[in-house]
Design a protein around this nucleic acid. Structure first.
Lengths: 115, 115
DNA sequence: CAGCTTGTTCACAACGGCTTCACGACTCGG
DNA sequence: CCGAGTCGTGAAGCCGTTGTGAACAAGCTG
């Protein structure tokens, strides 16, 4: 596979979460998620920076490909949408973690021990 | 693998759905479906890409073997016809899933937990 | 030719996605 | 414990996409 020409989005696995940006597809626990374009792109960017905090502004620019206007809440709104869909598809796990004043971080964590 | 021209269609099984393109035949839950040529070909192409999203245009070109004109709704209409026949033959399951802005995806899912 | 099936196209209804706003809950420094 | 700023959340409005029923044309069969 040629690497480096232009950043090809590749498959990403974060615990039970698998993302295949090429195919506009994300699966959780084997179950295909129904995501809108923005939702998928946001999830993809979070996943590409898994376990690291991504600043809200950086996240916006990666997904929306334009600078974020001050006070724009779009990222929050889409984080919410993703959280709902992820929680629905796989209850008991949490993926998107808020870092107050900084941004968000993606990592697969079980809220309860997997009993 | 060469793609497209001379590939012999093979039998495909997607959950309770079995397709035998050779015999222009599709069975659902043991029940033989009555499909027109277009319907069968559409279903077959969806099945060949099971669990993946097939873009509307790609689907059209696979089935109609000519480029899709902008605004052509044929795929939608035939998806509808297939959905009706599939639902009639096996209520409670859904097979053809819409991915807004991209296309369709075939996978066997029960709407209600199989209690 | 009459009747049926298939395929195509259209028009309108219904739905989904994106953006923005409003308000309440929360966090943190002091 | 307070206040300012940040985040969570639900909903409205607009618009493009998809769902749906039906009309119409073409071909086949008896």
């Amino acid at each position: 596979m040629a690497v480096g020409t232009s950043e090809l989005p590749e498959n990403i696995t974060i615990g039970p979460l698998e993302i295949t940006p090429d195919e506009h597809l994300a699966r959780l626990d084997g179950h295909t998620l129904t995501l809108s374009l923005r939702e998928l792109r946001l999830l993809t960017e979070l996943a590409r920076h898994a376990d690291r905090i991504v600043a809200r502004e950086q996240l916006f620019e990666l997904v929306w490909e334009r600078p974020m206007r001050p006070g724009d809440r779009s990222v929050d709104v889409y984080v919410r949408k993703l959280r709902v869909k992820l929680e629905t598809a796989l209850p008991g796990w949490s993926f998107i973690h808020t870092h107050f004043g900084f941004g968000y971080r993606l990592s697969a964590e079980t809220r309860q021990p997997v009993a």
